[in-house]
Design a protein around this nucleic acid. Structure first.
Length: 844
RNA sequence: GCGAGAGUGGCGGAACUGGCAGACGCGCUGGACUUAGGAUCCAGUGGGGAAACCUGUAGGGGUUCAAAUCCCCUCUCUCGCACCA
């Protein structure tokens, strides 16, 4: 009775064995370590194809490195705090803890079903007190070091729900629930001083050679370092001064007005409480602040003095000037800055050209816009004639010498506001005492546990703010009545150090120094580009805090980073029913109304476009090995992947062919000794096997190009199935090829490889086997094709033995009859030979 | 607008430092086995041509004995940033 490939049967069998034998558990030992990590998921309910791809990539790396003899740490956990759990509580009345734990249980089953080689003994869920107590501990340490502090800051506020909204709950400026217009409200909040590390975070990017250039550039822009000059502009008729920041000191002589941010203290001063009309006008400008729209300005009635030429220029309040960057005030040079140009146009302000391109003498027509490039200075007093770069230096020196300002470096990066007016997060371990002020929770009192018994209404403040038992405490310092902080931490705090927690099982401390020393840093991190800035930057920041707390000398958490592409699929629309799921289409028609469907463009899988594949369905139909194989075969990991049902079937067919071949030839294969005969290297199938090992190894090592590695394996399988053994004498070649092929397949399709490994009579676990070695001599072809070109066009092909000298192959090429014929009557100008495989004859 | 990346058969994608364009898979065509084929196996498959041969990697120029690959210009697409002074 012939055995049929039934993936579910095979896969469940081995998953049970692996779980039972703890096969993927890692503990420090004498071997070199390899830490393979994928971004842990938010437990949203079910995994999606993006997860499948992400974890398949990480799993191949982990399994491959394990076979290469590394002690591989490959953990998994849950980014378990977050807003959706709270939304579910509001909408469906399920407690966030319950919702989260149910989701984790389901998703964990899904991950196990994919055959991923995790060490589950290291699983963490960030919503467990055992985890978040260390968030609190890190927070206290940072507070001690001045890295955590409190200041007023704005939040999104829905006046109707009387609650704070996260950015993702604000849709087109309106509340996601009631559609009221969202306003900005100022609250006291906690910040982490990431800016203390801004220089280091920026400089170290240069050395992150294992990271994609793209991500490094994004972080660099995010940190946004710029060198410039701070200049004091005296306010006419008063002792006040306005400090501005500019990177274009060379345009200083062209400054025609000064603009203040609406919240600038001087704006406040210019429009004092008594000035009712002025106050109203100022409030109006403030409403336009931070919005990407037309520029709005308000003349203050005051003038500033340009320190280089004593020119008297008006002071405005402008909505486009940011209080958070630089000094909150700018000098405006309308001729050389587009924004200032637009502002000047609107308010009829003059402009003055002080930079010209090269030797252009004639006046350049301006109305089109500002000239923002560097050039040569004109009408700039003693600095006229200098280049922009020189002028920036000279003018800066001049300003500094006159004590009117100083050179400074500004960063776009702001401190990290971590306060969230939410329930489902880590409580910030702080207490407010009327007598002692802000008092940290003593370390011995950690964790500050999130109370379970709270109400979720979606209205009013955070549910914590109404939890009286939680709020009311006695002050740790004076023992008097005090209140707890009710804000919780941004969940990015949780994910900023989880990778370190995985390798540290110690219960009594945040991290175990010895374990960190062994496992850190992460050797390969895999995840989506969407975390290119925030998560990855916060993690780099946290690693440095951890370092400075004395846990480790390591600064960078992730040695190598792979950002995988998105999983995309064709979109399908019915003119009547809109977007359709793939299963709603039958023979190009809508299964509900029978209208012909329109096939749209390929886009990222999303529920709203319905171009999704359900991993559960996929695995049920084809099995985990096929799901993994196709995910890895259809594109290299860093590129977008186009999902294709037909392609999945192709992957399934490939596995089926292997399975059928092994079972069809089991007698022959098993009759062979597991060790192959030495000295038989010239056999074609053996050669192909060595070549395949070489290619697969090289493709994995070279940027994890699994797609070409799989293509090589497919070629080998084609060669294996085409091989007809003439008898027992050469059947050993088959045995050899199949055995190696299974070893190569093991990281990609772990169940199939193990099943057939066992079928061959092997007692060992294939995943504990060593990655096969190749022999370059055995891989070398006996004959190679020599391409002969005349003037760059292929004119003949000759089989030659490899290793001939350039002279020898040139001679062979020239003596080839077809070549002789083709060059009759022509002059041979030159002959080029390439590495024994190509000859180009130049003949005229 | 600025920054990054990418454009190769009907499709997904190969081609290490310039050296046979199209590996591998999908689809398609023909055949075999079949009551049947949407199963399996075999053969073919960039375009033109009966063939020799010509032509072809977004478009145009250039460098080179030789260009998908290097240089210049143009076009298209994707992603990121976007009043950061």
């Amino acid at each position: 009775m012939k055995r049929k490939y039934q993936p579910e049967e095979v896969e469940l069998k081995w998953q049970a064995v692996w779980a039972q034998s703890d096969l993927y558990r890692s503990d420090p030992d004498a071997r070199p370590k390899f830490y393979s990590l994928e971004m842990f998921p938010y437990p949203s309910g079910r995994i999606h194809m993006g997860h499948v791809r992400n974890y398949a990539i990480g799993d191949v790396i982990a399994r491959y490195k394990r076979m290469r003899g590394f002690n591989v740490l490959h953990p998994m956990g849950w980014d378990a705090f977050g807003l959706p759990a709270e939304n579910a509580a509001i909408k469906e009345g399920v407690h966030p803890a319950r919702w989260t734990h149910d989701n984790i249980a389901y998703m964990k089953k899904q991950l196990i079903r994919l055959g991923l080689s995790y060490d589950w003994s290291r699983e963490v869920a960030t919503c467990e007190p055992e985890y978040y107590r260390w968030n609190q501990w890190f927070f206290l340490k940072m507070f001690e070091k001045g890295l955590a502090y409190r200041k007023a800051s704005f939040v999104n506020w829905c006046p109707s729900c009387a609650t704070v909204l996260a950015n993702e709950q604000v849709i087109d400026g309106r509340c996601w629930r009631c559609e009221s217009v969202v306003v900005q409200k100022e609250l006291e909040q906690w910040f982490l001083r990431i800016t203390a590390y801004e220089d280091e975070l920026l400089a170290a990017l240069e050395n992150l050679s294992g990271w994609p250039e793209k991500v490094r550039v994004m972080q660099k822009n995010w940190i946004g370092r710029s060198e410039g000059l701070e200049i004091s502009f005296p306010v006419e008729g008063s002792r006040d001064e306005i400090l501005v920041f500019t990177t274009r000191a060379d345009t200083l002589f062209g400054a025609k007005f000064v603009c203040l941010a609406p919240k600038h203290p001087m704006a406040e001063k210019f429009f004092e409480a008594g000035n009712k009309a002025g106050r109203e006008a100022l409030e109006k400008i403030r409403e336009h602040y931070g919005k990407m729209e037309e520029k709005h300005g308000l003349f203050t009635g005051h003038y500033a003095i340009n320190p280089v030429n004593d020119e008297r220029i008006p002071i405005y309040v402008a909505n486009f000037v940011l209080m958070e960057y630089g000094t909150g005030a700018i000098m405006s040079v309308p001729a050389h800055d587009q924004r200032d140009f637009e502002f000047a146009q609107k308010y009829g302000l003059p402009l003055k050209t002080v930079i010209r391109l090269g030797d252009a003498k004639e006046a350049q027509a301006l109305p089109e816009g500002a000239f923002e490039d560097d050039g040569v200075l004109v009408e700039s007093g003693p600095f006229s004639g200098l280049s922009s770069a020189e002028a920036r230096r000279k003018i800066s020196e001049y300003i500094e010498a006159k004590a009117r300002g100083r050179r400074v470096i500004n960063y776009r990066l702001r401190d990290w506001g971590i306060s969230r007016q939410r329930y489902w997060g880590t409580p910030i371990p702080m207490i407010y005492c009327q007598r002692c002020g802000v008092v940290p929770v003593p370390e011995k009192d950690l964790p500050v546990v999130l109370p379970e018994d709270v109400r979720f209404t979606g209205k009013g403040g955070s549910p914590l703010a109404e939890a009286e038992d939680f709020i009311n405490v006695s002050c740790p310092s004076c023992g008097g009545r005090a209140r707890r902080e009710t804000d919780t931490m941004d969940t990015f705090v949780d994910s900023s150090w989880y990778y370190a927690r995985y390798c540290s099982k110690a219960g009594g401390t945040a991290l175990d120094k010895a374990d960190i020393a062994y496992y850190m840093p992460v050797d390969q991190y895999v995840g989506g580009v969407e975390h290119a800035v925030l998560h990855l930057l916060y993690s780099r920041f946290f690693m440095r805090v951890i370092r400075d707390l004395g846990f480790t000398p390591i600064s960078e958490p992730f040695e190598r980073l792979l950002t995988q592409g998105m999983v995309c699929m064709e979109t399908i629309r019915c003119p009547e029913h809109g977007w359709l799921y793939p299963f709603e289409v039958e023979r190009d028609r809508c299964s509900r109304c029978g209208s012909p469907v329109e096939r749209g463009r390929t886009e990222k899988m999303s529920k709203s476009k319905r171009n999704i594949v359900d991993p559960d369905q996929l695995i049920k139909t084809y099995g985990a090995d096929t799901a993994r194989l196709f995910s890895l075969f259809a594109a290299p990991p860093e590129r977008d992947l186009e999902w294709s049902e037909k392609g999945v079937e192709g992957a399934y067919r490939f596995l089926q062919r292997i399975f059928n071949f092994v079972y069809d030839n089991l007698e022959i294969l098993k009759a062979q000794a597991p060790a192959f005969k030495p000295g038989e290297k010239t056999q074609p199938l053996v050669r192909k096997t060595h070549q395949t090992i070489m290619r697969v190894t090289r493709d994995i090592e070279r940027e994890y190009h699994f797609n070409t590695a799989i293509a090589a394996m497919m070629e080998l399988v084609n060669a294996i199935t085409a091989f007809a053994p003439s008898g027992p004498e050469d059947a050993w070649q088959l045995r050899f090829a199949v055995e190696k092929m299974l070893l190569l397949l093991a990281p990609f399709c772990p169940h199939m490889a193990q099943e057939l490994w066992e079928a061959l009579g092997m007692a060992s676990d294939i995943h504990l086997e060593r990655w096969p070695e190749y022999d370059e001599d055995a891989a070398r072809e006996e004959q190679v094709e020599l391409v002969v070109q005349i003037n760059g066009k292929v004119r003949a092909r000759v089989m030659v033995s490899p290793g001939l000298t350039d002279e020898e192959i040139k001679d062979m090429a020239l003596s080839e009859p077809r070549i002789k014929e083709a060059i009759v009557g022509k002059d041979i100008k030159n002959v080029f030979a390439v590495k024994g495989k190509l000859v180009n004859i130049v003949a005229r």
